[in-house]
Each structure stands twice: as C-alpha cells, then as structure tokens.
Nucleic acid binder design. Structure first.
Lengths: 142, 142
DNA sequence: ACAATTTGTTAGGTTACCCTTACAATTAAT
DNA sequence: ATTAATTGTAAGGGTAACCTAACAAATTGT
C-alpha cells in the first residue's frame, strides 16, 4: 500500500523537497511553491498526499522531513534526472537549460529498463569520448 | 486560434485516426476506442475537441476525415514517433515493444529542437554503423 | 509586546481526461 | 422488412492537478 507508483507531479514535489533537505536547508511550502511555480495551496495539497503515502513527515506548521522510503524514491528520480541531463547536455549538446527541462519531463515516464540503457550509454560515452566528439562534429557540420 | 498546442491525449487520437486513413480505411469511433483502450464515450468527446480545433471533419454518424491542418499535425507527431522508435530500438537495443511504448510517451513532450537532435543522431548512426555496433557491444558485454 | 508581514490552510472552483449507463441511430441477418 | 446486433451519443460521475480568496498561525521589526 505504500508502493503505488507516484504521479509525475508528486515526483516533482518529492524531488524539490529532497534537494532542499540534502543541502541541510529546511523546506517551507512557499519554497516548493516558488520552485515549481504553483500556488501555496497546491503545495499543501501535494504535501498531504506525500504524507499519506509515507514519503514525508509533516503536520500543520511543522518542519517537513523525509522518511527513509521517501528518500529512496527521491534518489531514484534524481538519478534518472541526472542520467538524462547528461545525455541531453553532454551527448546531444543541448544547452543545459533545455537539457534540464527535457530531463524533467522524461524522468517520470521511463521504465527501469530504459533508464539502465541510458546509464549504459553514459558509461559508454565516458569511456569513449571520441564517439561523443564524432557525433558532435556530425551535427555541428550539418 | 487554430494553433494551440495539442494535449498528449489528443495527439494520440489524431495519430490513430491518421494511421487508419493512411491505410485507406475508414475509422469508426469504436476502432479508436479499441486502439487506445478508452471507452467509446471518451472517443466522442475527443472527436468533438479535434473537430473544434479544425483537425478533423466529422458530425454525428458521419465518416471521419482529416483536414489538411490535421494531417500536418499528425505527420509531425508520427515523425517524432518514428525517430524515437529508431533511437530506442536500433540504437538503444530495446525490444520493439518497449521502444514503441517509450516513443509513444516521449513523442508528446519533446521540443522541435530536441527532435532535431534525435534526427541528427539517427543520421549519424545510419552513416556510421560502427558506432552503433560499438555501443551495442558495450552493453552486451556489461 | 504588538502591529505588520509572511506563511500555511481551507473552501470552493476549473479543466482535462476518463468512466458507466442508457438510449438512439445505423447496419446486418434472416 | 423486421428483428437483432453494433455503433454513436448524451447525461451524469469521478479524479488529479491546478487556481483564487479569505482567514489563521507564526514570525519579524521596532
């Protein structure tokens, strides 16, 4: 009951919360609201759902903290994000902004399997920078 | 007013309709309903929206046909789909089913820019099969 | 300490999708 | 041609995400 798939939207909330806590900062609803460009009311709603699912601990006016389970889930999403960001930025050569935006959308919809392949691709390019270079040359000279 | 961005869902409907018409078959609501695994009622609703947006022509019990504009839009989506399918199947080496599923989700969320890069990547691999081979070897031997 | 500001929550709406049920229109079978 | 089956539509609901407005609680500045 604690392992249903999270919606894209809740994954985004979780990710933001994790990133704050990871920097040893406390997160307020308003921080999340700014980060995700949603209203404070929407944040309240999302926090309730995350707490329901045992991903975070929180209560009215309490500091938000994460459960172990929430941390695990957050890290999963963030790893997907990083791998995708690498792909779009370092391999595909998109500017880091567009790479991030694209990664943000795709991170929620790929399976473990597809994610593993992206990880392989990243390793491959890190071990063989000449391939990355060859492709970059290809689209530069298009 | 005729150029708002389509939702993922409406893009899916449009794609299915195009594919039927492209095969010179007439599309019925029930065909779409089966293809997309939604109720016939949902199809009616979607068809109304597509007609509102001038992507298809239809009326109660009429044969569904596409406008030129609809055709253009459908082709855009389908090209994204094909390019992504190539990427996931031929480059990433996923089975064609998982490649298709993944392409279906991603086709709705990538920008023109990102799509162009995937096209470049496809060209690159088609011109340099040795790169594809090298990567395949890499993940096979993992 | 207390007024002013900031932040969190509630209540009430909206929109996009999807559903089921029931009925209407069309098509097929005899 | 009439019944039976299939297909299309309307009505009424549900859910997830979002919003605004109003109010409550906490924090800050002096």
């Amino acid at each position: 009951m604690t392992n249903e798939k999270l919606s894209s939207s809740l994954e985004d909330y979780l990710e933001v919360i994790y990133n704050y806590i990871d920097k040893n900062e406390k997160v307020r609803a308003i921080d999340i609201s700014r980060e995700l460009s949603v209203s404070r009311a929407s944040v309240t709603e999302a926090l309730k759902k995350l707490a329901d699912k045992k991903l975070i601990n929180y209560g009215r006016y309490d500091m938000i903290s994460m459960t172990e389970y929430g941390r695990t889930k957050a890290i999963e999403v963030i790893e997907k994000h990083n791998t995708l960001q690498y792909f779009f930025e370092e391999i595909m050569g998109l500017d880091s902004n567009e790479a991030a935006q694209t990664a943000c959308k795709i991170e929620h919809i790929i399976s473990e399997n597809v994610f593993d392949r992206f990880t392989d691709l990243r390793n491959f390019h890190q071990n063989h920078p000449e391939y990355t270079e060859a492709f970059k040359k290809h689209y530069r000279d298009k």
